[in-house]
Design a protein around this nucleic acid. Structure first.
Length: 234
DNA sequence: CCATTAATTTAGT
DNA sequence: ACTAAATTAATGG
């Protein structure tokens, strides 16, 4: 209980075995600085980690688990921009811009994150080229990838869009042809940019065609070649 | 602590 | 929009 007031935990950045590519290039000295200016926390499924519109005081490192990056549209409407895998940073798109977060990040399962003081993060970027290089390459890769998906979504019809989302989840997020959706049907719709009804329709259509095997939240892609063809033809 | 029921959320049409 | 099913919270022993 000695740690209750000063918040000192057992975690230490120097011996962290879930380090980011960027943190891996830091010196022991810098890792110490990181350790003194960051804090690991458990986040529960459904909790919002960063909220769009709030002040950016921290950059968040996703140590384990999956997170959705989303924006709240007008009314109940929400748009999921991407799913983020472990060992990446949340909030980087807002690192330089204004003082506010542009996107919200919500946990799709129980997971661990580290809150890092944004000023310390910025110091590392200024002081260490290789750290900045890792961060920059991550940010630009993400940005291009997001654009790519949004552009595709813009000029494809329902089944093409939905095929895209399935391929995205399978190839880029989970890396397998069978996976447990961490998303509800509603969220799947928000990711695909279609209505909940059309999402359900597309799911059952693909199942009838023998392209998918659906068992609750578990989805297995049976005919990958056909799915790719549908994606390609829009 | 476990079991039952009530309430909220999710899925499918 | 509506109904059924499932998941989560509350209650009582």
């Amino acid at each position: 209980m000695n740690n209750f007031f000063d918040g000192e935990g057992e975690e230490n950045c120097l011996v962290c075995n879930e380090k980011s590519c960027a943190a891996a290039v830091l010196s022991d000295n810098q890792l110490n600085t990181l350790n003194n200016n960051s804090r690991e926390t458990d986040i529960r499924k459904g909790e919002t980690i960063l909220k769009a519109g709030a002040l950016t005081s921290h950059i968040v490192y996703l140590k384990t688990g999956f997170v959705k990056e989303h924006v709240e549209g007008p009314g109940q409407k929400s748009k999921i921009l991407q799913i983020i895998k472990k060992q990446s940073y949340l909030g980087l798109p807002s690192l330089f811009g204004a003082r506010i977060n542009h996107y919200s990040y919500t946990a799709l399962q129980d997971l661990k994150v580290c809150f890092i003081d944004i000023n310390v993060f910025l110091e590392f970027i200024k002081d260490r080229g290789s750290f900045a290089f890792e961060v920059l390459s991550y940010v630009s890769r993400e940005s291009l990838n997001k654009d790519f998906h949004l552009i595709n979504q813009g000029h494809k019809r329902m089944y093409g869009r939905f095929a895209d989302v399935l391929l995205y989840l399978s190839e880029e997020i989970f890396g397998t042809t069978a996976f447990d959706l961490l998303l509800t049907r509603q969220e799947l719709a928000e990711l695909a940019g279609m209505s909940r009804e059309n999402t359900a329709r597309a799911l059952s259509h693909f199942r009838e065609e023998g392209i998918l095997n659906i068992n609750g939240k578990n989805i297995e892609i049976l005919k990958m070649d056909l799915l790719k063809r549908i994606s390609k033809n829009g």
